[in-house]
């Protein structure tokens, strides 16, 4: 394997869970999650050569993941033969952990795409500054949006 390919493979191994969790939260089914996952990996590969280390690598990966998922073209034809996946179906499994994950998915999926990105990053324990850097808004804006998102989540819980 060439060195840049190995670097990319190592990077993807390190961040695969974060990337896939973003794709999962933006997808309606397993096929869509796999499509988004493949698309994010392709964009990361393409962008790796141009990454100038002006931000942390993790910040860049989050940014690419969210930008890809938010702007993905869901009507693109799916090519099952070459799709990369995590070989896991979080939409169909019935074990208790997966049910909990599905509850999380149901809550977050009801938010607007941009709000999904903010709440996911906040749940990861990422600072307001970094959230702002990833999604491209000010720290104050992150704070305001988070309050609103929490309120919406609470209203959803009360209705359910």
């Amino acid at each position: 394997m060439k060195e840049n390919e190995k670097d990319f493979a190592d990077l993807v191994k390190q961040y695969k869970s974060s990337v896939y969790s973003v794709c999962y939260m933006f997808a309606k089914d397993a096929d869509e999650a796999d499509d988004l996952f493949q698309e994010v990996l392709i964009n990361l590969w393409k962008g790796m050569a141009m990454f100038r280390h002006e931000s942390k690598i993790g910040t860049w990966i989050w940014r690419v993941s969210f930008n890809t998922c938010i702007s993905a073209d869901r009507r693109r034809k799916r090519n099952k033969e070459v799709r990369l996946s995590m070989d896991i179906d979080l939409f169909e499994s019935t074990d208790e952990d997966t049910r909990q994950i599905q509850m999380l998915h149901n809550r977050i999926h009801r938010l607007k795409p941009f709000d999904r990105a903010i709440v996911m990053l906040w749940l990861e324990g990422i600072s307001y500054e970094e959230i702002g850097a990833i999604v491209g808004i000010s720290v104050k804006n992150v704070s305001v949006r988070l309050v609103r998102i929490k309120e919406m989540l609470k209203q959803m819980s009360d209705r359910d």
């Binding site: 869970s17 995590m86 952990d97 909990q100 749940l123």
Partner: peptide
């Protein structure tokens, strides 16, 4: 929700 995120990451890892 944080706990559920933890479950998700553990599964994916």
């Amino acid at each position: 929700m944080r706990r559920q995120v933890g479950l998700l990451k553990a599964k994916l890892d």
